[in-house]
Computed example of a mutant assay.
Amino acid sequence: MTDLIVEEMTCGGCASAVTRAVQRIDSKAKVDVNLQTKQVKIESSQLVDKLIEVIADAGFPARAA
């Protein structure tokens, strides 16, 4: 399980964009977004750095929690 903080995520559309970005590189990834805490929990076989990269490429800078 990977825990990330995505500060610029403010709405359901943002959460969907983050989820889609992760699932583009791992279609089986499980993504749990908490908009209040800006936390994203990801269950994926991808490395943390790659997850952070694809989320940032979608316009949402991320960092490890």
Rank of each mutant, 00 (worst) to 15 (best):
V18F: 03
L51S: 07
K28T: 15
R63C: 04
A56L: 00
V31H: 09
I25M: 13
V33Y: 03
M9L: 06
K50V: 12
L51I: 11
P61G: 01
Q39E: 11
I25S: 06
A64W: 07
I55F: 02
A29V: 12
I52Q: 09
V31E: 07
C14A: 00
E43K: 14
L51D: 05
K28E: 15
Q23W: 10
D32N: 14
R63Q: 11
V54W: 02
G12E: 00
C11Q: 09
E7N: 13
I52F: 03
L51Q: 03
E43I: 12
D3C: 11
V18D: 03
L51K: 08
I52E: 02
A65L: 09
K30A: 14
G59S: 02
A17T: 04
S45N: 10
I5Y: 10
A21E: 05
A15N: 05
I5M: 11
I52H: 02
D57K: 14
A65C: 09
S27W: 11
V48N: 03
V48A: 13
S45V: 14
K30F: 13
V22M: 10
A21G: 04
C11K: 07
E43P: 01
E7T: 05
I5L: 15
A29D: 09
D26M: 08
I52W: 03
N34G: 04
A58G: 02
N34Y: 06
C11I: 00
M9G: 04
A62I: 03
T2W: 14
I25L: 13
V6D: 04
E7C: 00
K41E: 13
I42V: 15
G13I: 08
E7W: 11
N34Q: 10
I25W: 05
S44A: 11
A29R: 06
